[in-house]
Design a protein around this nucleic acid. Structure first.
Length: 278
DNA sequence: GGACAGGAAGTCC
DNA sequence: GGACTTCCTGTC
């Protein structure tokens, strides 16, 4: 495990950084609001707090106005990823795990995860990031941090009051109906906290009640928003990897209770194209 | 350069 | 199985 120390009022340091690789964690497709600047520093917004994250001398630094506990939770720092034993072993998976070492599953805000992964359907990551950013700029709250303006992810209450046509500026296409519908459901008693208390299967079933949420999106929300680590989203990349590098009729449940972490290693590895290079 | 096809962390009917 | 919005990416 890694040591977490408070450097000063608004900065915490994690060392060694081996268990949290910000580049892999932010670029593996699980989140859409962290952006790297030309100096290699990431900025993002979590629960209404902006933050900067960077690596220096084998140490990860996080600077924000939010308390240390928020980051311990968000980065899932209580969990020792290197100590996790997956019941399934295979050459492709072992390579994926080595390649993805340092990825952590972020404990994202539930509504944000739901909304973001509704947007993700049939879309590529750069475009998803663009739509999410426009959603925040148009409907979130402005936050000033170190002289820059950031925007929070808009509340479901805010989105619920809109008509799908009001979302035209974010250019989410046909997903606008789903976004507004999900926001209204959440405001009318569709309880994401309750969903988080359910089993994996029950949570998926519950989420699929929402119009525009199918099995894939539901599993993303389960894993990235509800912190149910057995969530296993099967998208086109995972489908291809399973077909090409795993036994026929392979059951992802073979990865055990942390199947979602395995999924993320495989997704990141498959999408990198690394295994195809000479 | 710009045009064009294919496809993108899918879901619905 | 086709339709759905929009646009990123690779190819010519």
């Amino acid at each position: 495990m890694q040591a977490i120390e408070l450097v000063n009022n608004n900065t915490i340091a994690l060392s060694p950084h081996a268990q949290l690789d910000p580049v892999k964690t932010f670029e593996c497709g699980q989140c859409f609001r962290w952006n790297m600047d030309e100096d290699g520093i990431y900025t993002g917004v979590v629960l209404g707090s902006a933050a900067k994250v960077w690596v220096e001398d084998e140490t990860v630094y996080i600077r924000s106005n939010a308390p240390k506990s928020l980051w311990e939770d968000y980065f899932d720092l209580d969990r020792d990823y290197d100590a996790i034993e997956f019941p399934y072993a295979g050459e492709f998976f072992e390579s994926s795990r080595r390649f993805g070492q340092g990825i952590r599953i972020l404990r994202q805000e539930r509504w944000e995860a739901l909304c973001s992964f509704i947007i993700s359907q049939c879309n590529n990551i750069p475009r998803i990031k663009g739509i999410v950013e426009r959603l925040c700029q148009n409907f979130g709250e402005a936050i000033e941090f170190e002289g820059e303006i950031f925007y929070s992810f808009p509340n479901p209450e805010t989105i619920a009051l809109l008509e799908p046509s009001d979302l035209a500026p974010i250019r989410s296409g046909y997903r606008a109906d789903f976004i507004v519908g999900a926001a209204r459901a959440v405001c009318n008693g569709f309880d994401l906290d309750y969903a988080a208390s359910l089993s994996h299967e029950e949570a998926v079933k519950k989420l699929c009640e929402l119009h525009g949420v199918g099995k894939k999106v539901a599993n993303c929300v389960v894993l990235f928003g509800l912190n149910i680590m057995s969530g296993f989203p099967i998208d086109t990349w995972i489908k291809k990897a399973l077909k090409e590098h795993f036994p026929p009729d392979f059951d992802p449940a073979s990865f055990g209770e942390y199947a979602g972490i395995a999924q993320q290693y495989i997704f990141y590895y498959a999408r990198s194209g690394q295994h195809e290079e000479v």
